[in-house]
Design a protein around this nucleic acid. Structure first.
Lengths: 185, 185
DNA sequence: ACCTGAACACCGTTCAAGT
DNA sequence: ACCTGAACACCGTTCAAGT
């Protein structure tokens, strides 16, 4: 009558990487309500509680996702001699990351415990770089806020062509901001 | 055995205004998870389902809240002759509204159906005003994004003194942006 | 018009128990 | 170490029924 308990004889262990991948698609394919511990477990063919072993609770899951997504922003950014070029690169990649996973960004905003050190790394790197080319301390916040807003707006692009156009508009705005606050000397 | 059904003889009708007031405090006093239809109803001494009669479903509730909060932004803004002064006033009030109800702002971000026409009115007014003093079309987005980001950050102020200081920093940044994109002629 | 209880289909998370 | 079922305390929302 009762189904078998415990770890099944042939049971495959679910990989942490798979959890994160599937979680990310659940988050992106819906309106943000698609990612639940139960739905995630079901999609992975596993009991909800087994997830807790790999990623902790829901905030832990979000933090892991945030790490995975935002780490890509820092990867392959060589310390350029040209500060301005490095700033552009960093922000463009960040903007893209937000645009690719807007629901993740919103979820993190609403879940302070989900903040990962990676985002801190990004903003720290940006502030030190910006300190080299401008004396306006608020420029960093302005740039990051705009990356958020514009990145989130990217979600409402109707097709790839429009998304491309919005990306270019962002680049333009970014250049304009840098020009006006830190004119190339 | 069974408790009475239907409208109680002396039952007071719950007022829509009370619903919104209590909903707003539930939203603000917690970490954003405090506002649920059931908790709201309980606080009002009413069954959850009675709420649906007044504000519709959860998205309707959020839209009503958004209207109440953001309408105050537009109120008492006389059309000033000085475009720049009006822009400053509009954004400062918007920034304050976001800062006072950060969780509402986040909830609306995550719930597109909750968008009220009022926010559209605000951005429309801003765009037409900005068109008068600058040719950079993205300035409007930059200003609104920064109002969002800085307003949301206001939530993490540890005391009123610090909040005041952050408000002033926002003003400063706003002026700086306007100066650089639309220098007073 | 306005409020009610019951019901449906969900949630996150803890726990003790299996292998 | 890793997975399990059962249970607890919640959700939003629909429905038919009361006054």
């Amino acid at each position: 009558m009762t189904r078998p308990r415990g770890r099944p004889a042939q049971g495959k262990t679910v990989a942490r990487d798979d959890i994160l991948n599937v979680a990310l698609t659940l988050l992106d394919e819906g309106d943000g309500q698609g990612l639940t511990m139960r739905a995630l477990a079901a999609r992975l063919g596993v009991t909800p509680m087994s997830l807790y072993h790999h990623v902790g609770d829901q905030a832990g899951l979000l933090r892991a996702l945030s790490e995975r997504v935002y780490t890509e922003v820092l990867e392959g950014i060589d310390k350029l001699v040209d500060h301005r070029a490095e700033i552009r690169m960093l922000l463009t990649r960040y903007h893209q990351a937000v645009g690719r996973h807007p629901q993740l960004t919103l979820a993190i905003f609403a879940t302070p415990e989900a903040f990962s050190g990676v985002t801190r790394e990004i903003t720290d790197r940006l502030t030190t770089l910006l300190a080299e080319i401008t004396t306006e301390p608020m420029l960093c916040h302005i740039l990051i806020d705009h990356a958020h807003g514009s990145g989130l707006a990217l979600a409402s692009a109707r097709n790839e062509r429009q998304a491309q156009a919005m990306q270019e508009q962002y680049q333009h705005a970014l250049d304009s901001l840098l020009d006006r606050f830190a004119p190339p000397s």
